[in-house]
Design a protein around this nucleic acid. Structure first.
Length: 826
DNA sequence: ATCATGCCCTAA
DNA sequence: TGAGTTAGGGCATGAT
């Protein structure tokens, strides 16, 4: 017997006669990998009599007998009283022979029963029932490296892990989260533009803080075999690369299919069998696939490993203005000279490969290393591990799962403990859009001394205070029942009557967050770890509203979402009203925040004013916080667009909504706007206008760097089987500049990924639609396109004119360089 | 010129 | 199929 601790990377199951065995892929605290076969968990679903709680059919016993007699049913448990939205009802747990019979069985049972707990994937059931997170301790028996012995224990054979072990569910327990020493495998392919075949490849394996690079060239088959062998030998938990979801993984699949006959399953596995399972006939036959799989438009799944695309992670955390590997790398590693060197022209890969293969290979190796460096730089893996720990899901679900899966993990385990029936995920439920937050009109202009206050975790607080939950919502009021009523009349039982699952979970998460925040301040604590954890808690807390307001979630009701936002509108409007009644101007407000003009000048007075307001308006369960003090606030009069100079608690510039925050703006506009904001905030309006006039003049004269005019926008599309792209997702693709740019990229033989940003320059604007040219300078070494200077001058004038209009300069005036004296100018 | 529509991206 | 939400600005197109 051994005792170890590890982090669950992924889970699956195997059937073994009448038994079901959970497979857990673990990365141990000490660094080795384990495939753990867990025995003792039985698959089941639950049934109850349909309709209201008081309807008990005469033939109940017969119906139960019919269920007992069903082929796939192994055991019918004694009934348990569970809460449903139609009252307390008896629920019978129906054990079944294997998890895979559940979908069919539940369809049959649905005809005469209300079915619940019938769509929970089996490995997650293990975590729910034993209240485990991804970090576990287990005791068990290490199996000999012998396929038969492993199969006897319920496994598939010789897994490519460091060890295979077996245990019983009673041998598992939860442990405090720790940083597991995951192994990451990053790779990159270089492919022929003319033939599509793979020319060479590189891979980097990162283990225990050090990385080793491998390169592959020669016959395409050898390249694929070499990569696959390296995956299986290095046994990574995480597979990464730049844009592998859309390019490298489909490419491996495509080339394997091209090289191997469909029937030659073992050869196919040798070329592309990256899954963490043994190379057996069953695995190769695609039922329990050894090849990576991708559901339509979904992330790739590879049994036992996590696919984590560095492009997607970088996009989500950095929101970069452009999304090429080169751009993101330079953003993250500005001091790395080697990244600026343009080694290889990707649009002429065949010639490059023929002329100087060693340089291409080196370039390929660098592009295999960078994704690992990017993931490290943005802390992608540790963040996902923290999320997994808070949501209590395998790493795989934190990386590739959806928000509702994370919440399911918490909500269902509590529902089970509280005897609340778990309905199936609702499907196709149409819902009228619910009303959202309140946004206050903002008058154009400059406002000195503004206090910004906001409600702390507004939606979660509302859900806790008003006990909002699927299990507390009521339609009719029965006598002597205490309830909370939302401003639109939705009713929820008070906590004293029945505490909702969601309020309890949210309160627990709030406490967890406070704990991690306190730990961060304690001397000698792991600050980074606790910061990751508190951040993951925050993410999860803020997900509740969206999931419960969604039309598809299992525990939702349209009234839940609209009640939350109704309370939110009511809370914020009350404060605005109270302030305005007493003559304190509210400059702006959005959902959970108010911007209030301070009656006195000066930082000290502002801070005192802000704290005073926070104290005055905070009430039980709705804590208003003094968030920021602004010495000056400016907006041109549009909601969700403002700028301010923060003087408390830290000095900084606060900008929201404006072009400078947007990834589809261009650098020249950003710089012009920043310069103008600085001047406006400093009350140098004349200078602000002169600054804009100067720049517009420069643009008209063609006297700016073309690279400052690059516009990037994401572009959708559907990759066809033959590699071409279908833009018919758009109703008028020909009229969209970014589609034009994408098409021109493709024509040049450059990669285009549906969903990825494309960069372009507007070169002609007299005729519509606009003519654009893709920006390829850093990819191919092309000369920059010649911009349509007038177009850029006009766009600059339009964007800046909205702002300077407050000072009497409209877009047209800015373009002309002078203004018509008008009644309103000064 | 004006308006509706489609689309992207952001605030919360 | 699988899926967190609504409010809002602004750009380009294309019809009127």
């Amino acid at each position: 017997m051994v005792a170890e601790e590890g982090c669950i990377v992924a889970g699956s199951y195997q059937s073994m006669g009448r038994e079901t065995v959970v497979e857990l892929w673990l990365r141990a605290r000490e660094g080795h990998s384990t495939l753990l076969l867990v025995h003792g968990l039985r698959p089941f679903l639950e049934i109850a009599v349909p309709g209201r709680a008081d309807t008990v059919p005469n033939d109940l016993e017969q119906r139960l007998e019919a269920v007992r007699g069903m082929r796939d049913v192994t055991l019918l448990h004694e009934p348990v009283e569970k809460w449903t939205d139609l009252g307390m009802k008896s629920h019978w747990k129906v054990e079944v022979i294997q998890p895979y019979v559940v979908p069919k069985l539940r369809e049959v049972l649905k005809k005469s029963w209300e079915v619940s707990s019938a769509d929970i994937i089996f490995p997650q059931r293990l975590l729910l029932d034993l209240d485990l997170g991804p970090h576990i301790a287990w005791t068990g028996e290490i199996l000999p490296a012998d396929g038969d012995a492993i199969r006897d224990a319920g496994g598939r054979g010789l897994y490519p892990t460091d060890q295979v072990a077996r245990c019983h569910i009673d041998d598992l327990s939860a442990v405090e989260p720790f940083a597991a020493p995951f192994v990451t495998f990053s790779f990159d392919l270089e492919t022929s533009i003319t033939g599509g075949q793979i020319l060479c490849a590189a891979a980097v394996v990162q283990r225990g803080g050090s990385s080793k690079t491998h390169t592959f060239d020669g016959e395409e088959r050898d390249i694929l075999e070499g990569l696959t062998r390296l995956v299986r030998e290095s046994d990574p938990d995480i597979i990464t690369g730049y844009n592998i979801d859309n390019f490298d993984l489909p490419k491996i699949r495509e080339r394997m299919e091209a090289l191997e006959d469909r029937r030659d399953v073992f050869s196919r596995a040798a070329l592309a069998g990256w899954s963490r399972i043994p190379v057996t006939e069953d695995a190769c036959k695609n039922r329990k696939p050894i090849l990576a799989e991708r559901a339509v438009n979904r992330v790739w799944r590879m049994a036992g490993r996590c696919v984590m695309d560095a492009w997607w992670q970088a996009r989500m955390t950095l929101k970069p203005k452009r999304e090429t590997l080169r751009f993101v790398s330079e953003l993250l590693f500005p001091d790395r000279e080697d990244l600026r060197k343009m080694d290889v022209d990707a649009s002429r890969m065949d010639e490059e490969w023929a002329a100087r293969p060693d340089v291409v290979l080196e370039y390929c190796a660098k592009d295999a290393l960078l994704p690992i460096e990017i993931l490290d730089a943005i802390g992608a893996t540790v963040r996902k591990e923290a999320l997994a720990a808070v949501a209590k899901v395998p790493l795989e679900t934190a990386v590739g799962g959806s928000t509702s899966q994370w919440l399911d993990s918490l909500v269902i385990r509590l529902a089970d403990r509280e005897n609340v029936a778990v309905p199936m995920t609702r499907r196709g439920g149409r819902s009228d859009a619910i009303t959202g937050g309140y946004v206050h009109e903002v008058e154009a202009g400059r406002y000195p001394w503004v206090a910004v206050l906001d409600f702390k975790s507004m939606y979660p607080s509302i859900m806790i205070t008003n006990n909002i939950c699927h299990t507390t919502r009521i339609d009719k009021v029965e006598a002597d029942v205490a309830f909370n009523e939302s401003p639109i009349g939705t009713k929820f039982l008070k906590r004293s009557e029945r505490e909702g699952l969601v309020p309890r979970l949210l309160q627990d998460l709030m406490d967890q967050r406070d704990h991690h925040k306190a730990e961060m301040k304690r001397e000698g604590s792991d600050v980074q770890f606790h910061d990751q954890m508190q951040y993951a808690v925050k993410i999860l807390m803020n997900s509740f509203y969206g999931v419960f307001a969604s039309a598809f979630y299992r525990f939702t009701h349209p009234d839940i979402g609209s009640a939350i936002t109704a309370w939110a509108r009511s809370n914020i409007k009350q404060i605005i009203q109270a302030l305005e009644d007493e003559g304190t101007p509210v400059v702006y407000s959005d959902t959970d925040s108010v911007f209030v003009s301070a009656p006195e000048e000066g930082r000290e007075a502002l801070v005192a004013f802000g704290h005073g307001l926070a104290q005055r308006f905070t009430k039980e369960g709705a804590e208003l916080e003094f968030e920021k003090g602004l010495s000056v606030f400016f907006s041109h009069g549009a909601k969700k667009r403002y700028v301010g100079r923060v003087v408390w608690p830290e000095e900084e510039l606060l900008i929201r909504g404006y072009e400078v925050r947007r990834t589809d703006s261009f650098d020249l506009l950003n710089r012009t706007m920043m310069g103008t904001f600085e001047r406006i905030l400093d009350d140098e309006e004349e200078d602000a206008v002169q600054h804009v006039l100067g720049l517009i003049k420069q643009v008209k004269a063609g006297d700016v760097d073309v690279s400052d005019l690059v516009i990037s926008r994401s572009c959708k599309g559907k990759l066809r089987k033959d590699g071409t792209v279908d833009f018919s997702v758009y109703s008028n693709p020909d009229g969209l500049p970014y589609v034009q740019a994408a098409r021109k990229r493709i024509e040049r033989g450059l990669q285009f990924t549906p969903g990825m940003k494309v960069s372009y320059i507007i070169t002609e604007s007299r005729n519509r639609p606009l003519t654009v040219e893709p920006w390829l300078v850093s990819e191919t070494g092309d000369d920059p396109p010649v911009p349509d200077w007038n177009f850029y001058a006009e766009r600059l004038a339009r964007a800046m004119g909205r702002i300077t209009e407050a000072y009497g300069w409209k877009a047209d005036d800015l373009l002309k360089g002078n203004r018509q004296a008008s009644l309103f100018s000064f």
